[in-house]
Design a protein around this nucleic acid. Structure first.
Length: 758
RNA sequence: GGUCGCGUAGCUCAGUUGGUAGAGCACCGCGUUCACAUCGCGGUUGUCACAGGUUCGAGUCCUGUCGCGACCACCA
């Protein structure tokens, strides 16, 4: 027996129950039509923020739609170990507990322990949002399978010469004492000082003045460069200058790098501490002199004056400037605005630092990844993002993948006593290889470094399907149908997946890449804790229901535009869902016959034919919207149908034309409406269907008849005209409206009261 | 410096081969005889940034200008 629905729509009273009831339906189905999405694995340190809510909602809409349409849907969930981010969190926690002297292995054990305790918080939050992923297949980027895949990939790339070890300048994060990639840097525009410093010319009383923002690097100088066409310095070519506070002489050389318009036109060359100087140094066969240690303290060596040895660079700068002033070597100090690189996690200034690191030959791997997009094997939606992708891929630099941290995939490389490098998937294989090469394997030392988090993320689409084994799943679900993600990780993740997956499989990892925008506040500002404009999806769901949040995010997902959302928007969506709720209550109160299966759908009345026709058109629209990734239209079409067609017109008419046919068709169409809306608002639709139609869930395939009903569009048009006329009569306050209605068939004329309903 | 995007009602934005300017919110008026005040009915609101051009016709296509934003690079 049906329960009468509560007077008010209260999502918190049923959302959990609905989710639990349908969860078993999220697993793989038997069907030859395959649809697959790799869920971007959130960091285990994460909490669901509104950006997550957006990306998961859009993905869930797609997978629910295709699951309903009978596809075998794989939505692959999982979590990311998030190297530095996680290590930071755990370090802080251990520090608070006073545990600071752990060994490497003990620390790793602590991270795993922490992961077990708090790593699935975000997964619970994903469920709260209604994510219908294949949870039983959930993976972690450090689980056994992923670790094997990562080691395998590393070894393969190494053997192909696409991973190599090199001494290069890298971005050095002195807080974490690790190299980081170019992408992990954020540049901040800041006030700075450009110091003009005099270097004395050797064997001469003259001086040459250079300008620098980083005087503390001067002890690593190996030359001063001037432009060959610069008349000011022609007389100095081939002479030597002396670095202040030292007696080291450096040559004055000619190089195009020196820009006559900048500074004094003479520039100090410090190859070990500046990217441009590194290139100039190589070009001119200059030595590289490192003067920093890993903490960016000045080294104690023959290059650094004794009074600065062991001092932190930033502090050394002040001392040097003072000392220059005292010695009358500072010509001037100019205030300038310049951008300074910071570590995105550590928030400390990043220094170019000369170290041995592992690199991926990204320029080589990028070739295939680039041409695949050019050939439209992978399409970006909106299309404008292909330019961003091209731009980056064409200018891609070697990717530094080694990190001097603890938490991550340890690099499968072993060093021999004489600098030999052995790269194998396991220690066992490495030892065997050592024996073969005549190296005493007991003397092998494994590289302590771990891989950049994104190295494993880049393998996510294939590794989760069992690669490097040739599994059935890989055959079936790869390449995946679409990747949904934000533009902020096109480079971090999308590009890396393209490169690595294509290299290992020869196939693109996804046919489409849908790029959504950022969620901002109603003024278009980025949400941040300090501004206090952060929307917490968990709070919103508690207040208005998960459906309301999902509907809002879908509604505002205009392609290529940022979403400007405030709490009121969610409230408005909740109000719309209330409208659905109340429509259901109306049907209930008026003893409508709840059946989703009508034996024969062949109504006689224009009104019913019209409603069926409109429902069919809704289905068609939604099909198109989903195909075109127009999530905004999906929400709008659902809203317009329910409000304007079903409630405002049809239900109002049904109060006048209260026939059995009307009741049958109304309840049938309402069911179809719930089915069609389900991907966006799964909770309320499942609940209503369960309560009213005694059907468990809308999650799985439903062989609906809607699209096979024959519709006479001339008849639809007649009723459309009638609807328009009614609106006209209402707004113009026409009293003798019967005259206006005479053009319509008797059935519609009989509904004349609709013109005066207020 | 390079790339891309945006400027339409007070606000947030739709406007898909060029053909009479739309929605929601806000605002104003009316309405609580039972689906719905978490609401209904109705109304007001625009030199479509500016200037040219193509066209019978431009919010839509082209060129330029101004304003805003994002990303990348450089940063002696």
């Amino acid at each position: 027996m049906q329960q009468i629905l509560n007077k008010t729509y209260d999502p918190s009273s049923f959302e959990t129950e609905v989710y639990n009831r349908s969860e078993k339906e999220f697993e793989l189905q038997n069907s030859n039509n395959v649809y697959s999405i790799m869920m971007p694995p959130p960091n285990i340190t994460g909490n669901l923020h509104v950006g997550h809510a957006l990306t998961y909602t859009l993905q869930d809409i797609l997978v629910r739609f295709y699951r309903q349409s009978g596809y075998n849907v794989l939505w692959q969930p999982g979590t990311d170990h998030a190297g530095i981010a996680t290590q930071m969190v755990v370090e802080r926690k251990l520090e608070q507990e006073g545990q600071t002297t752990l060994t490497r292995d003990e620390f790793i054990e602590q991270v795993w322990k922490w992961k077990q305790q708090s790593g699935d918080i975000i997964v619970k939050q994903q469920r709260r949002l209604g994510c219908s992923a294949c949870w039983t297949r959930s993976r972690f980027t450090m689980d056994e399978g992923m670790s094997k895949a990562v080691a395998h990939a590393f070894v393969q790339l190494f053997k192909a010469g696409l991973i190599y070890r090199d001494k290069r300048l890298v971005n050095w994060d002195y807080k974490f004492k690790t190299a980081i990639s170019d992408l992990e840097i954020v540049n901040k525009e800041e006030k700075g000082t450009l110091w003009y410093i005099k270097y004395q010319i050797a064997d001469n009383d003259e001086y040459i003045t250079i300008a620098t923002t980083r005087p503390e690097t001067m002890f690593g100088d190996v030359a001063i460069a001037v432009n060959p066409n610069d008349d000011r310095y022609k007389s100095m070519h081939g002479m030597f200058a002396i670095i202040p506070f030292t007696d080291r002489k450096i040559p004055i050389i000619c190089d195009e790098h020196a820009d006559m318009g900048k500074g004094t036109g003479a520039v100090k060359i410090t190859p070990a501490h500046d990217y441009n100087d590194f290139i100039v140094g190589k070009r001119n066969n200059l030595p590289m002199i490192n003067i920093f240690d890993e903490n960016i303290h000045l080294l104690k060596n023959e290059y650094v004056p004794e009074f600065l040895a062991g001092i932190f660079a930033k502090k050394a700068r002040k001392i040097i400037v003072e000392k220059l002033k005292e010695n009358n070597l500072l010509v001037k100090a100019e205030e300038i605005m310049h951008s300074v690189p910071y570590g995105d996690r550590s928030n400390v200034v990043i220094e170019p630092f000369l170290t041995d690191q592992w690199f991926v030959d990204a320029p080589q791997l990028a070739k295939e990844a680039l041409s695949a997009v050019e050939q439209k094997k992978t399409c970006f939606i909106p299309e404008k993002w292909v330019n961003t992708y091209y731009e980056w891929m064409k200018n891609i630099q070697p990717w530094c993948i080694s990190r001097q941290i603890i938490w991550g995939h340890q690099i499968p490389a072993w060093f021999g006593p004489n600098g030999e490098i052995i790269v194998e998937e396991t220690e066992e294989k490495a030892f065997k290889q050592a024996d073969k090469l005549g190296i005493q394997h007991t003397k092998l030392i494994r590289d302590k470094d771990v891989l950049d988090t994104w190295f494993s993320s880049g393998l996510w689409p294939i590794a989760t399907l069992g690669w490097p084994e040739k599994t059935e799943e890989l055959e079936k679900f790869y390449p995946t149908t679409v990747l949904i993600t934000g533009f902020d990780i096109i480079f971090f993740w999308v590009a890396r997946m393209m490169m690595m997956c294509m290299y290992f499989t020869g196939k693109v990892p996804f046919a489409d890449v849908y790029i959504h925008a950022l969620v901002r506040d109603e003024k278009g500002q980025k949400m941040s804790k300090s501004k206090g404009n952060v929307l917490d999806p968990l709070v919103l769901m508690d207040k208005y229901g998960a459906d309301a949040l999902r509907f809002t995010l879908s509604f505002f997902s205009v392609p290529g535009c940022d979403l400007k959302i405030c709490e009121d928007n969610v409230k408005i969506s909740r109000n719309f869902i209330t409208k659905i709720w109340n429509a259901a209550r109306f049907l209930q109160y008026n003893n409508f016959i709840f059946s989703k299966n009508i034996e024969e759908i062949n109504p006689k009345s224009l009104l019913c034919k019209w409603l069926l026709g409109k429902a069919q058109m809704l289905q068609q629209q939604i099909n198109d919207d989903v195909k075109n990734y127009r999530f905004d239209y999906i929400a709008k079409d659902i809203q317009v149908f329910l409000r304007e067609i079903f409630c405002d017109f049809f239900i109002e008419c049904s109060k006048i034309a209260d026939t059995t046919e009307v009741k049958q068709i109304a309840s049938y169409v309402f069911f179809e409406f719930l089915r069609i809306s389900h991907p966006v608002i799964p909770f309320v639709t499942d609940y209503l269907v369960h309560e009213l139609y005694e059907s468990d869930t809308l999650t799985t395939k439903d062989s609906h008849k809607l699209m096979s009903i024959k519709i006479n569009y001339d008849e639809i048009k007649i009723v459309d005209n009638f609807v328009n006329t009614v609106h006209k009569i209402r707004s113009n306050d026409i009293t003798n409206y019967e005259e206006e209605l005479k053009q319509f068939p008797d059935e519609l004329q009989a509904l004349h009261k609709i013109c005066t309903i207020r």
